[in-house]
Simulated assay, not measured.
Amino acid sequence: MASLIFPLDARRVKWSSSVEQSWEVNEQVSASGKRRAISYQSLPAWTFNIDFPYLTAAEKDQLFAFYTRVKGQLVPFYYKDAENYKVENLTLIKNSDGTYQLVANMNGQQEPVEYADKLTVYVDGTEQSTSSYTLDNGAIKFTTAPADTAVVKASYEYYWKVVFSKTKITVTQIFKNVFKVSLAMKVVR
């Protein structure tokens, strides 16, 4: 199945759009006041709250069709954020299986990426042809593995794997053939 990609250009969002980071923490406090806390998350939860202040009728229809296709909150899809989407010359770490995982860099927090485009890969400073590697779930696998001492770097634009946060979508008409919508999408792994 082809990857589902959010159809609207996130660079057209309103400036007041936001990103939330959250951690679920279980806390117990004893009668003496001693606190015990634990989180079962290894990565933070991210939510993108975005407003599109001006949509055309065609974009509104495209958004409704996409929302139908993913059945609201049911089916995950990929979203390229307006601010957090690009990595330049990042040194990649070699996985135990010999692949190199692409990562998102969100305010210093790095986490695995499943989908990316505009990928350029370098081994010891030399750009690699696209026929010398494959990309599978965000992991680069070389047809001929680089030396263990090789430095592998990459530049790319990444997408966040998300679902809509709400079970319904409301698009408001503000003028003839001009609409606005507010959306929230949470990252899923």
Rank of each mutant, 00 (worst) to 15 (best):
L135K: 11
T126C: 02
Y100F: 15
V162I: 05
I140R: 03
Y159I: 03
R36A: 08
F48H: 12
F48T: 05
T167Y: 08
Y100S: 07
D61P: 00
K180N: 15
I93Q: 15
V178E: 13
Y54P: 02
K34I: 06
Q21G: 06
K141C: 03
K34E: 14
Y133I: 08
A104Q: 07
W160A: 02
S131N: 10
I50M: 14
V162N: 00
G125F: 10
S155M: 07
N89M: 12
N84Y: 11
E20S: 15
S42D: 12
E83H: 06
N89K: 14
P146G: 08
S30N: 12
G108S: 08
A2Y: 07
Y40R: 10
F77P: 00
L135Y: 10
Y156T: 01
Q101K: 15
D9F: 02
D51C: 08
Y115A: 00
S155P: 12
E157D: 14
L92R: 06
I140N: 07
P44I: 03
I38H: 13
E157W: 01
N105H: 06
I50S: 07
S129Q: 13
V121L: 04
K80V: 05
K186C: 03
Y85W: 08
T91N: 09
S155E: 10
N89D: 13
S131M: 04
R12F: 06
I140L: 15
S131H: 09
A139S: 10
Q62A: 08
E20L: 03
M106H: 05
L102N: 12
L102C: 11
F77V: 04
T99P: 02
I174M: 09
W23Q: 09
E83N: 05
V103N: 14
M1A: 10
R12C: 07
Q28V: 05
P44M: 06
Y133D: 11
Y133P: 09
W23G: 01
L135H: 08
K86L: 03
A184W: 00
L43N: 13
T134S: 15
P112A: 15
N89H: 13
F48K: 11
N89I: 02
D136I: 09
I38P: 01
N177T: 04
K161R: 15
G108V: 07
A139T: 05
R36H: 12
Y54D: 14
S129T: 14
Q28E: 11
R36Y: 14
A2F: 02
L63K: 04
Q73G: 03
V171Y: 02
G108C: 06
D117S: 09
N137G: 11
I140P: 04
K86V: 01
E24Y: 02
S182N: 12
A150T: 04
L92N: 04
P44K: 10
N177F: 03
Y159G: 00
S131E: 10
L43K: 14
K168R: 10
T47L: 03
Y78K: 01
T172C: 00
